[in-house]
Nucleic acid binder design. Structure first.
Length: 570
RNA sequence: UGGGGUAUCGCCAAGUGGUAAGGCAUCGGACUCUGACUCCGACAUUCGGUGGUUCGAAUCCAUCUACCCCAGCCA
């Protein structure tokens, strides 16, 4: 939506997003279906945490509402009290909100409609389109037939309307034990679509519900509740994933039998799969319960809360969801695209700061002892408005162990004996000596600096090929840095691996904790959740739970692209 | 062997009978006080296969093939 200079909001009419669902909606709008209304919903079941796959659905549903000037409801699909919990409701609300979407006062629960749903069931019975069936679960399964063979009709199928009404009411009243009876739609036991072979509509569950308590002991099935909840909320486009495609005839059957006026329609799209990632609930639970990760919000988890704790931004996730598109072909998106979206977002936003993860001491021999010098450096070259900050330079500094090599290969631009390198925002130094311990480990590097090459100074135009980051020994601060990598080794995705094999495919290096890193003192003031670019290394986020001003803890969100690493490999 | 779907570059994905968008990845090169960013360039004579219709087909027709989903009183 564009705001005109007069302050009048102009509705965007050139809906540029292109997907088959957008096309359908554009066409419905052209035909003035639903009087031009577009109303979607995101219907999570509160039985687990939201993950990146849900983000696609959230962005689609809320995105469509925004784009077509419509509305999107948040509706909890809480029709099965044995699986659902308040705790998940809370977490899901937090995640959807964090992603940047709002539903105003349209937060609903399928359980809000249990009375109406019951009435719909009674109506169906009265129309002779539903009956109470006494078959056991096993018998129902037998009677259903198979993919290739038609089913048989239940012996209870021809009960009178009166008897059905009486029995259904007594089911509701709690007269029968779990599993003893169900309400079934009377459709077609020989349908090639198994969903139409007299599907179960209501089952008996003497179970306390997280919202309705003990009021009910019969609960509607998803297939019954969903289309009717959609209709009650006046949803126009009910968007779900591919596996519900052959539930659509049942969805339509119920809507046609019970709803007058505008009828919601169901459309299906392919759910998101990501490389190096699993998203099935069972697999994720196995990781958490087996202690392979530290909870649902472990920064390696593909949950929304995991991404949040890792340091991903909602903007990056939304951009990603826009870019992957929406179609009906099963696909596996390269996680590199997600990382690209993240880097692009953080490149603009994240202040630069210097942090030495694996420090080695450098002594600048010709720099006076006890002298300190304040140098200025930009906070973010991509964003001049972010201003500048001061660095303190001195005789003893730390640099990255990796930025020095005694016997460098060709094209190594960093420090080595006799070679020069620039210290970012400071001076050019030259290595004159290397001090080692008895085992041959480098403990100190001796350098000289060229006072004429102060950063920003008039004589600073001398060029060297490499620039490295550093911190002063006497004002550096210690930090713990957690380097995260993919949870799974390459070539793994949800479809390519079964539940039992995931553990063997775990990446043993998915987390490396480094203590005693040396970082700029300004980081003492950083707040949990704050994000930075550690110069030349990557984007890092102060941990939401463990970071505080006395004990700094940063998560690596994603490393910077590294061309040198590529060259080295070859 | 029933029903429902899907096949366009390594990975996503537009395209709706008029002569294959875009993004990611990759590979070159320029720039660089981040080997980052940015910038320039390369990257589908061909759309799962085969026939056909047409002046013209990724788009229409026929046929074949591959893959995904469905036999919960889960969602």
């Amino acid at each position: 939506m564009r705001i005109l200079s007069r302050g009048v909001a102009k509705i965007n009419t050139d809906y540029s997003t292109s997907s088959f669902i957008h096309s359908i909606i554009r066409n419905d709008l052209k035909l003035n279906k639903y009087n031009g209304r577009v109303h979607t919903r995101f219907p999570p079941e509160p039985n687990g945490y939201l993950h990146i796959g849900h983000a696609k659905s959230i962005c689609l549903n809320f995105g469509i509402a925004e784009e077509f000037n419509g509305l999107c409801n948040l509706r909890f699909d809480d029709t099965n009290p044995t699986k659902e919990e308040e705790e998940f409701v809370r977490a899901i609300i937090e995640d959807v909100r964090w992603l940047g979407f709002s539903w105003d006062d349209r937060l609903f629960y399928a359980s809000d409609y249990f009375d109406q749903l019951y009435d719909f069931a009674v109506t169906l019975i009265k129309k002779g389109k539903a009956y109470v069936c006494d078959l056991s679960a096993e018998e129902i399964k037998e009677y259903r037939g198979t993919l290739n063979q038609p089913g048989k009709e239940s012996p209870y199928r021809s009960r009178s309307i009166e008897e059905n009404l009486d029995l259904f009411e007594r089911m509701k009243a709690g007269e029968f034990p779990n599993g003893s009876r169900v309400l079934r739609a009377k459709i077609d036991m020989s349908s090639p679509n198994l969903n139409m072979r007299d599907p179960v509509l209501y089952r008996i569950m003497h179970e306390k519900h997280h919202r309705t308590g003990d009021k009910w002991c019969i609960y509607p099935m998803y297939d019954f509740a969903h289309p009717l909840c959609d209709a009650i909320e006046k949803i126009t486009h009910s968007i779900c994933t591919l596996e519900f495609e052959d539930h659509r005839p049942l969805y339509d059957w119920l809507v046609d039998e019970l709803i007058e006026g505008d009828k919601p329609r169901q459309y299906e799209f392919a759910r998101l799969e990501l490389t190096n990632t699993v998203t099935s609930k069972r697999k994720l639970r196995k990781l958490v319960e087996g202690g392979y990760v530290r909870g649902w919000d472990d920064p390696r988890m593909p949950t929304i809360s995991g991404f949040r704790r890792r340091g991903y931004t909602p903007e990056a996730i939304r951009d990603f969801c826009d870019r992957i598109g929406v179609a009906k072909a099963n696909s596996i998106v390269d996680i590199a695209l997600l990382e690209h979206c993240l880097r692009e977002d953080l490149n603009k936003k994240a202040p630069r700061v210097m942090a030495v993860l694996d420090p080695v001491k450098v002594v600048i021999l010709n720099y006076p002892e006890n002298q300190e010098e304040v140098l200025e450096t930009e906070n973010n070259p991509e964003n001049p408005e972010s201003g500048k900050r001061n660095l303190v330079f001195s005789r003893n500094i730390f640099i990255e162990r990796e930025d020095f090599m005694e016997n460098p290969p060709k094209k190594y631009f960093r420090l080595s004996p006799g070679k020069e390198v620039r210290l970012k925002s400071a001076y050019i130094i030259k290595c004159v000596n290397v001090i080692k311990d008895a085992k041959g480990n480098i403990v100190e590097i001796h350098c000289t600096y060229d006072p004429e090459t102060k950063s920003g100074g008039g004589a600073s135009s001398r060029k060297v090929k490499g620039t490295i980051h550093w911190v002063s020994e006497n004002n550096a601060v210690d930090a713990e840095i957690r380097l995260y990598d993919y949870l799974f080794i390459d070539e793994i995705d949800d479809d390519s691996i079964n539940d039992n094999d995931i553990i063997s495919k775990l990446n043993p290096d998915s987390l490396k904790v480094i203590k005693n890193c040396k970082v700029e003192p300004i980081l003492k003031n950083s707040l949990p959740g704050e994000k930075f670019q550690f110069l030349r290394q990557g984007y890092f986020c102060a941990d939401l739970k463990d970071h505080n001003s006395k004990s700094l803890v940063f998560n690596r969100i994603v490393p910077l692209k590294d061309t040198w690493a590529k060259i080295k490999k070859q």
